[in-house]
Nucleic acid binder design. Structure first.
Lengths: 138, 138
DNA sequence: GTAACTGCAAAATATTTGCATCCTT
DNA sequence: AAGGATGCAAATATTTTGCAGTTAC
């Protein structure tokens, strides 16, 4: 098991349970974003559907995961960088969704360029969602 | 009624029906994006829920509307610029979601800056979603 | 008149809530 | 032991599908 798992949970004052360990492990193993359905599949029906909903929600509240905006109706989640703390996400990075294989990536190292918005708009968060063909599918 | 309505429908080989006229009118009146629920409300229960789903889907297919990515699970729609044609969206513009009033705007005149993605990623579409406080709520 | 569109019913899917039980600390 | 987390059941919400009746052209 990934050494960061227990640490991350404890740092966030969460009790260390099987479902939380397993779900966190899934995100650490795969670099891509995961939707509720993905987790249900990859955890092999080990946990209740509801537990997964609640775990994801808890992780988002604690700043362990963030949701990724997308134009379809599927909510996807990805690991936050360490800078994220409770109720305070700093995820102004780029997401890439592959049209072919459907994988969603967090491109942490790419920064979102500054944008000039019309006067009066105060920006708190910037999300750049790119889509196209990913490196595996080209 | 807005003069563009009939024209837009005919240009896309769609028959001119009450629901389509009304829904298109809603989008032309309000500059903001609309979710299914918004349309249901503002059309005063005039149409069936299912008709709204189908109308929105048809409009997206025809390139009259596009969907806006968002981190919550609500799918919002907004008018495409004229350049969009069937199956071929060109909406690389900026969307702004107000955290206070919940309104989503299409900022057509703001362009998405170029981004340098890692080698091997082919970008077909770029969506920049900004959120914060809008001009009315500041 | 015919093809396309709508409304209704119902199925399928997704999400939320309450509560009793179990597990972590 | 106590509080929190889970599982199950069920309520709610959302989206899709089939089909018969209606409307646009």
């Amino acid at each position: 098991m990934h050494p960061r798992i227990i640490d991350t949970l404890k740092r966030n004052q969460l009790s260390v349970t099987d479902s939380r360990k397993k779900i966190l492990e899934l995100f650490l193993e795969r670099k891509a974003a995961l939707a509720h359905a993905d987790i249900e599949q990859h955890s092999g029906d080990e946990f209740d559907r509801v537990t997964i909903y609640r775990t994801l929600q808890t992780f988002v509240e604690k700043g362990i995961l963030h949701t990724i905006p997308s134009a379809d109706n599927a909510v996807r989640y990805a690991l936050c960088k360490d800078a994220c703390t409770e109720g305070h996400h700093h995820d102004n990075h780029v997401h890439f969704m592959c049209d072919v294989c459907g994988t969603t990536y967090c491109l942490d190292h790419v920064t979102v360029p500054a944008v000039q918005l019309p006067k009066g708009y105060q920006v708190h968060q910037l999300d750049l969602v790119a889509s196209g063909t990913c490196i595996k599918c080209k």
